[in-house]
């Protein structure tokens, strides 16, 4: 008796691409590094949403975290810039071509230490960029020194105690103008997926601070960025569901405690309250929650803020709809008569 094996039909997304089309190079990060899980979520989300990978552009600074764009979306352009200055490169590129769907990956050192200036100014501009901070509280790539997000009193492997208070990048993002702010944990697959998908649909700056343990330098007893610490202290403020615009939106509305946010592309972000009365459209309230949670020693995660109504940077600059990069000469070089007139005025 003979059997014929027919390969199972290739699984593809709504634009006919399989998940391999969203993969990157093989990771060179340590086994168990939180950053790798985040790369996997990025791959899944872009695949599941059926985004054309060649319309995506990846940006990063320097660090283990900043290496990770090489490990997802090989079909997207990438720019691995200089330490702490990914925001400026992304800004320039996105001005050149406003059709770029931009995702930036940074570390806590890259963002909150050397890059705090560019990060803060990025917040003012509402550039439609997905800005992921892979936050492990240390400089992984330079072998484990404290970064500016390390909590007061947390301990290095060498026994050194951190004596400076941390920056909370979500609080900064809330205060200075990001229009989508979330915190997650690399180990929470479901939450991170929903948040990432919402960020992909958001038009404006999304800041996602993901606690992403460094197994090699900051996963020990006494660290506040370890897997164990997160297991004990992760306090989701809400449960998020994402329904993409191309799926049947008329999902059943469950009883009470649910907030629906319509994203720019028509997708739906469904935010379920968990216990406490938390409203992610109320910026001041979220800030207060962040401060209170910090005092309690909790790490609150979930969607902390969303505002879909603000103009983005391109609108603020009143730019033409087409990419500046490919405007024809006739639209960027004024005719001779204009030069002649200008010369006449200078005579």
């Amino acid at each position: 008796m003979s059997t014929t094996v027919t390969p199972p039909p290739r699984k593809v997304n709504r634009i006919g691409l399989d998940v391999l089309s969203y993969k990157g190079g093989k990771t060179t990060l340590c086994a168990g590094c939180g950053h790798n899980s985040i790369s996997e979520r990025v791959i899944e989300c872009f695949y599941e949403l059926g985004v054309e990978p060649w319309m995506v552009t990846k940006f990063s600074g320097i660090g283990c975290s900043s290496k990770s764009p090489a490990y997802f979306l090989n079909l997207a352009h990438g720019f691995n810039g200089v330490h702490g200055r990914m925001p400026s490169v992304a800004t320039g590129a996105m001005l050149a071509n406003r059709r770029i769907l931009a995702i930036g990956v940074s570390g806590d050192g890259d963002t909150a230490s050397i890059g705090i200036g560019q990060f803060m100014h990025l917040l003012r501009r509402n550039l439609p960029l997905i800005y992921i901070i892979e936050n492990n509280g240390v400089y992984g790539l330079t072998k484990g020194q404290f970064s500016a997000t390390a909590d007061l009193g947390s301990k290095l492997k060498t026994g050194v105690i951190n004596d400076q208070p941390p920056f909370d990048c979500c609080a900064l993002a809330l205060e200075w103008g990001a229009t989508f702010v979330a915190r997650s944990f690399s180990g929470d697959k479901k939450q991170l997926q929903a948040i990432l998908k919402a960020a992909i649909s958001h038009r404006g700056l999304s800041v996602i601070d993901v606690i992403s343990p460094c197994t090699t330098f900051n996963d020990h007893e006494g660290s506040t960025k370890s897997y164990a610490y997160m297991k004990d202290h992760d306090e989701p403020v809400n449960e998020v569901d994402f329904v993409p615009h191309f799926e049947d939106i008329s999902v059943e509305i469950p009883e009470g405690g649910v907030q629906d946010v319509r994203m720019h592309d028509g997708s739906l972000l469904r935010i379920k309250k968990l216990g406490r009365d938390f409203d992610p459209t109320d910026k001041l309230r979220s800030l207060t929650e962040l401060h209170q949670a910090q005092q309690r020693g909790e790490v609150i995660t979930g969607v902390l803020f969303v505002d879909t109504g603000k103009p983005d940077f391109h609108d603020m600059l009143h730019m033409v709809e087409e990419p500046l990069a490919t405007l024809p000469e006739s639209r960027v070089r004024p005719p001779k008569a204009v030069l002649d007139q200008l010369m006449e005025e200078l005579r």
């Binding site: 552009t57 490169v89 800004t91 320039g92 001005l95 050149a96 200036g117 990069a325």
Partner: peptide
């Protein structure tokens, strides 16, 4: 630091 980063990013993406 930012003005040159933006200029380089823009040039990379095809702007003058």
């Amino acid at each position: 630091l930012a003005s040159i980063g933006m200029a380089i990013g823009a040039g990379w993406a095809g702007a003058r």
